[in-house]
Structure formats: structure tokens, C-alpha cells
């Protein structure tokens, strides 16, 4: 799996809406109410709350993830980003194919993009 696919995978699997089991159109109060319920269920070890569904499969749900998701959805900017990914149809990673025509090689690109210092 390439780095980028990993990245897409991570965005989908830790999407705050998926973690909380909410739709992107939910209200702020619904975020609080659902988050509080899930935290309570996790604290009591209820199996119903132990996993959540994403377009890339079932994922284990933890209290940290629920808290982080609640914080993400309270902030309008980060909520927007997650709403964007929550709307992506399942199977998107497979669609990431390189363009057929390769652009010219650019040896300076890594340095320009800031990965390593010039050798």
C-alpha cells in the first residue's frame, strides 16, 4: 500500500462522523448527546459501542477517539474537513491510479517539498 493510500485510509477510518455514528447534517447538540452516550457505554464495556462502521470496514472505538471526534466536530473548520470525507463513497482508495502519461522527472522535487536536506 502506498503512503497516499494509507493517508486516505486513515482519513476514512478515523472520520469523526463515522466514529460517532452521525451524519454530516447533525446538530451540535446531537454531537454532544451521542458522544456522551458512547463514552458512557464504553466505560461500562458495552459491546454495542465497541465498534463503528466506515467505508473501509469496522473499526474499534475507543474513548480517546470519541473525545477527539467530539472536539473535531465542535470546531467549524475541522468539522468541514471531516464532513467532506464523510461524504466520500466507499472504495475511493482503489480509484487512486497514477496518470498514464508521466511528467518529466524533477530531481529537485523532494528537496523543494521539504523531505530531506540537499545531499
Amino acid at each position: 500500500m502506498s503512503l497516499s493510500e494509507k493517508d486516505v485510509f486513515a482519513r476514512l477510518k478515523e472520520n469523526a462522523f463515522h466514529v460517532l455514528g452521525l451524519r454530516p447534517s447533525c446538530t451540535r447538540m446531537e454531537v454532544e448527546r451521542e458522544g456522551q452516550k458512547l463514552l458512557a457505554m464504553l466505560e461500562l464495556g458495552l459491546s454495542e459501542a465497541a465498534h463503528y462502521d466506515t467505508p473501509v470496514g469496522r473499526m474499534p472505538r475507543t474513548a480517546e477517539l470519541v473525545r477527539a471526534s467530539m472536539a473535531t466536530l465542535r470546531d467549524p473548520t475541522t468539522r468541514l474537513q471531516h464532513a467532506l470525507w464523510a461524504q466520500l463513497p466507499p472504495g475511493t482508495p482503489a480509484a487512486q491510479v497514477p496518470a498514464k502519461e508521466e511528467p518529466a522527472s524533477w530531481p529537485e522535487a523532494p528537496v523543494r517539498l521539504g523531505w530531506r536536506r540537499p545531499g
Binding site: 502506498s2 497516499s4 522527472s105 530531481p107 523532494p110 523531505w115 530531506r116
Partner: peptide, 14 residues
């Protein structure tokens, strides 16, 4: 970075 590494020659340059 994410997009760059999808280039078939990315690792060759690195």
C-alpha cells in the same frame, strides 16, 4: 507529498 509518492518514479529519485 502524498500526491508525489504516487508518481511511479518517486522512490527512484529518493
Amino acid at each position: 507529498n502524498a500526491a508525489f509518492y504516487r508518481h511511479p518514479s518517486a522512490w527512484e529519485w529518493q
